[in-house]
Simulated assay, not measured.
Amino acid sequence: MMTCRTALWALCSLLFVLALPCAVGADALSWSAPADPKTCPVGDTSVWAEYEGGADCIRYFWAGDLDDAPVALVRLYGDRTRHLRSEPEEIPGNTVRDQHDHAARWAVELGMPVVVIARPGTYGSSGDHRRRRSIEEFRAIDAALDRIVERHRIGSVILSGHSGGATAAAALLTFGRKDVACAILTSGAFDLLERARLLREHSGRVPRPGVDLTGVVGPYDPLDHIAGIVPNPDRLILVIGNSRDSVTPFALQREFANALAAAGHNVRLMEHSAIGPRYHDLRGSIGYTATRDCLATGN
């Protein structure tokens, strides 16, 4: 049942979206733009994120009562390579208004503030999406989250990512973040070089040892950095996938979950129905359900 506070969040979120100026709300967001602090939008939809090795303008879109929130859901999308050759105006959901509306739907459904962070090179964030799964991508997201948490005075976060977004969320854990109350990793890519070997072999492609499917040499693999995750017995890590997944093999997701458990972390591995023929995108509202599981366990 929706509480009065939740109803107020919903109303405020809808009013915020409706109040966006047409030029701000409807214009297409840039993709693969260079990092330039002079062109990074001023306001509460972007941060200038400086990190070891670089800096990026990272866009974020939020809804709900975010300022001083005790906990907020932070969502990271999966890879968006299918849009790299498209004009920004042709990409679905590629406006500030669309992204805020997406966050608002989640905030209303869950009754909590929601933040969507655009990965480098996508939805207005500077960077090169072809360099995804490099350490620079993950450092940029991590630094952006630091700035967002600081700006809005957020107490803790629930990290939620799908596919490449799950890999990014796992990477943030390995950077030693202490503000993660729970993590939801659906259909994530782990053991990246083994995954690349398996998928190249399956498709008859030439082997490329040491090179990720993105072309990145020596990608940052969360599986290799579990030692960096801060111990916290109260933090639940949900690893959710489908055993028939042909994009991110479930065996490698299980390998990651087992490694987390061996390191003493509170992890739960779950199988869930998915959409064929790739069985990569999970059916139903598992994201909502998993977030509620986090909240119900006090995380």
Rank of each mutant, 00 (worst) to 15 (best):
20 L>S: 07
4 C>G: 01
49 A>E: 09
159 L>R: 15
77 Y>W: 08
264 G>V: 08
127 G>D: 02
280 H>R: 13
153 R>N: 05
238 L>W: 07
95 T>A: 03
62 W>L: 01
277 P>L: 07
282 L>Q: 12
95 T>C: 05
193 L>F: 03
188 G>F: 06
231 P>E: 02
20 L>D: 06
29 L>A: 08
72 A>M: 06
76 L>T: 12
268 R>G: 00
194 E>C: 01
11 L>Q: 15
63 A>C: 02
110 L>T: 15
96 V>T: 14
92 P>R: 15
9 W>N: 00
13 S>L: 03
231 P>D: 04
68 D>E: 11
118 A>L: 05
82 R>D: 02
48 W>K: 12
149 V>K: 15
178 K>N: 08
299 N>E: 05
101 D>A: 13
217 V>M: 05
207 P>S: 09
100 H>W: 08
52 E>Y: 01
277 P>R: 15
41 P>F: 07
40 C>H: 11
165 G>K: 10
197 R>F: 01
69 A>S: 14
244 R>L: 13
173 L>I: 08
267 V>F: 06
104 A>P: 02
243 S>I: 13
44 D>V: 01
43 G>K: 13
26 A>P: 01
180 V>I: 13
292 R>G: 00
259 A>F: 03
219 P>M: 12
225 H>W: 04
146 D>V: 11
69 A>M: 08
197 R>G: 02
183 A>T: 12
15 L>N: 11
240 I>S: 06
216 V>D: 04
197 R>H: 12
172 L>G: 10
167 T>D: 02
110 L>N: 12
173 L>T: 12
152 H>P: 00
111 G>I: 12
136 E>G: 04
134 S>T: 13
271 E>Q: 15
207 P>F: 02
219 P>G: 09
82 R>K: 14
171 A>G: 03
8 L>A: 11
87 E>N: 13
229 I>Y: 10
64 G>I: 05
213 L>F: 03
101 D>M: 11
174 T>R: 11
129 H>P: 00
219 P>H: 10
29 L>M: 11
137 E>R: 10
289 T>W: 05
283 R>Y: 01
35 A>M: 07
120 P>H: 11
295 L>W: 06
13 S>C: 08
220 Y>V: 06
173 L>E: 12
259 A>P: 06
273 S>G: 13
29 L>Y: 09
128 D>P: 01
71 V>G: 03
126 S>T: 14
193 L>K: 12
274 A>R: 14
271 E>F: 03
186 T>W: 04
194 E>P: 01
162 H>F: 07
250 F>H: 15
178 K>V: 00
46 S>V: 08
163 S>Y: 06
89 E>Q: 13
82 R>S: 09
285 S>M: 06
256 F>Q: 08
186 T>Q: 14
51 Y>C: 07
93 G>V: 01
192 L>F: 05
148 I>M: 09
25 G>Y: 05
